[in-house]
């Protein structure tokens, strides 16, 4: 293990030199994308933060799937992520079992897919582009719960 330098780290010094040199300007699409995501804000939503998922005994860990768990407001959203041909399939489980009329929206910066949650608390979305995504869970008579933005890479 290397020790963290006490003062300014190497990358920040390089960043400062680059910023001042002005030779690597921000491509216009980067701030444009940052401005565009303002439409994704969800005022009043509770942000579900990731919690560690213990690896179940006997289940191989590896490239095939990945389980993520988010919690907020006594609601847990579990997401199993499976890469398929460069895209991502997402299978979700909401618990405790949601009441009728509960819906989810799986959001990326570019598209939103809405799903009704089954009576057993499940939902699925297939063929998502890799990249940033978050899931909004809307329950009748509750504030929405939204999972913290997470990056899935192929």
């Amino acid at each position: 293990m290397t020790r963290r330098p006490p003062a300014i780290d190497d990358e920040s010094l390089i960043a400062a030199l680059r910023l001042a040199a002005g030779r690597d300007p921000v491509p216009a699409h980067v701030p444009a994308a940052a401005r565009a995501i303002f439409g994704l804000r969800l005022p009043g939503a509770a942000v579900a933060v990731p919690v560690a998922v213990p690896a179940p005994a006997g289940v191989r860990s590896g490239q095939e799937g990945r389980l993520l768990r988010f919690t907020a407001d006594e609601l847990t959203v579990e997401l199993e992520i499976t890469p398929v041909d460069g895209l991502v399939d997402l299978a979700g489980q909401v618990s405790p079992l949601p009441c009728a009329g509960t819906t989810v929206e799986v959001r990326t910066p570019h598209l939103t897919q809405a799903r009704e949650v089954s009576a057993t608390g499940q939902f699925a979305v297939t063929g998502l582009p890799p990249g940033w995504f978050s899931v909004v869970c809307r329950r009748p008579e509750h504030s929405p719960v939204v999972t913290s933005w997470t990056r899935i890479r192929p």
Binding site: V49, P50, R66, I81, P83, V88, S148, T150, R151
Partner: peptide, 8 residues
């Protein structure tokens, strides 16, 4: 390079 979700 592998598929990983980041929060963990």
């Amino acid at each position: 390079e592998r598929l990983v979700a980041d929060p963990a």
